[in-house]
Amino acid sequence: MLALGLVLNTLGIGLFCWAIFALAVYALPFFVALSLGMTALRSGVGVVGALLIGTAGGALTLVLGQTAVAITRSLTLRIAIAIAFAVPAAVAGYHLVFALSQIGVSSMAWREAFACLGAICVAGTAWTRLTVFAEARPFSSVEAVEKPSQPILTAATREG
């Protein structure tokens, strides 16, 4: 039974790690949705209205962020948007790794070190997942001209 418990605990921690990396890019939209929902709830909209407003605000944040990174030509703007998405992911990653490290690490210095490393990894994952749709665009019109591709020789087109 002890071995089964260790295996299941390891799988559970692995599931948490997978979830934080898979959901890292959604940290900023979640924070926006939560803030908008709580503000709407306090203003008297009601629970259903607050849920709708929060969900719409979070979805809009995600869609606008991904679209802006994919469309914009300015590298500075892309970096600013990616940082805006990566910072909340880093905060969430820091707190998650810090909480999980309390299970098996007794030294406070090592917990902090693991938490900082986790924050960097989660922020990098959010950055990568956000910018994966951004294609590299040429900065000058000379580079934009496509070079003709070399024809592929097949067995049917070879002479001789």
Rank of each mutant, 00 (worst) to 15 (best):
V105K: 07
A113P: 00
F133G: 13
W127D: 06
A84V: 02
T72G: 04
A144N: 08
I83F: 13
I120V: 15
L100T: 02
A92T: 07
A113H: 03
E135V: 11
A99Y: 04
A82Q: 03
L100C: 02
V105A: 11
G124P: 04
T72F: 06
Y94K: 03
A113L: 10
I120N: 04
A119T: 00
L117R: 06
A90G: 11
T131H: 02
P151Y: 03
A109F: 11
A109S: 13
A113C: 04
V91E: 00
L100S: 01
A109C: 02
V87M: 03
S141T: 14
E143F: 12
V87G: 02
F85R: 01
F85M: 01
L130R: 08
F133P: 00
F114C: 01
W110C: 03
E146V: 14
G104M: 07
P138T: 12
V91N: 01
A136S: 11
K147W: 09
E143C: 06
I103D: 11
R111A: 04
A126H: 11
A126V: 10
W110G: 02
L77F: 07
I120M: 13
E135N: 09
P148L: 04
T128Q: 14
F139E: 12
S149Q: 15
A134N: 13
I79Q: 12
V142R: 13
L96T: 15
L130Y: 03
A99L: 10
R129A: 13
A89S: 08
T72R: 05
L96W: 08
F114S: 01
A113V: 08
A123Y: 07
F114N: 02
W110R: 12
A70T: 11
G118M: 02
A82V: 05
A144D: 10
P148A: 11
A134L: 04
S141D: 15
R78E: 09
G93M: 03
T128G: 12
A99K: 07
A115N: 05
I103L: 15
A92K: 03
A90E: 01
E143R: 07
W127E: 04
A84Y: 01
F85S: 01
Y94D: 01
A109W: 09
A109M: 12
Y94G: 03
L100R: 02
R73P: 08
A126W: 08
R129I: 07
L100Y: 06
P148Q: 07
A99T: 09
V97L: 05
P138S: 12
I83N: 11
A80G: 06
P88D: 00
L117C: 07
I81E: 07
W127P: 07
E146W: 13
T72E: 08
P148I: 06
H95V: 06
F139I: 08
S107A: 11
A123E: 05
L130C: 04
V87I: 09
S74R: 08
G118P: 04
A109H: 09
A80N: 08
I152F: 09
L77K: 05
T131R: 08
S141A: 15
V132E: 14
